[in-house]
């Protein structure tokens, strides 16, 4: 794991089956590396918390059914993984995933709040 993680050439999935396999392969890489991440970035959280957060991120896009959208998500996940494993990040960048959402990112739910925010 101390060696450089190489980039992979992006390619479009030809079928949902292939996309599924690539998603699970990416998830497997992440979960396998969760302990490495906590140890090498010296995070003050356990690897279980990291695993939970990774799963949360994958579940966020559970309903995506468009093949090209899935491909983009696969590339983004892989990019994030590569940046993490090659130390192109620092501990704060990793910990940013565990921050509570910022006040301005929380969408208002009441009528006037949505009106002021320009959303309907």
């Amino acid at each position: 794991m101390s060696t450089h993680l190489p980039s992979v050439v992006t390619s479009s999935s030809t079928s949902f089956l292939q996309a599924r396999r690539r998603v699970l392969s990416g998830y497997r890489d992440w979960i396998r590396s969760s302990r490495w991440i906590t140890e090498n970035y010296q995070l003050e959280i356990t690897s279980d918390v990291v695993k939970k957060r990774i799963r949360q991120e994958y579940e966020k896009f559970k309903g995506v059914s468009d093949l090209q959208t899935i491909d983009v998500l696969i590339y983004k996940g892989r990019t994030e993984y590569e940046e993490t494993m090659n130390y192109w990040k620092q501990a704060t960048h990793v910990m940013r995933f565990f921050d509570a959402p910022r006040a301005e990112d929380v969408k208002p739910t009441d009528f006037l709040g949505r009106f002021y925010a320009g959303r309907d």
Binding site: R20, L24, I31, R32, K51, R55
Partner: peptide, 13 residues
């Protein structure tokens, strides 16, 4: 689900 299955295989590893 499939994510659980991946987690199980890693626990076995």
């Amino acid at each position: 689900d499939s994510l659980d299955q991946v987690e199980i295989t890693i626990a076995i590893e």
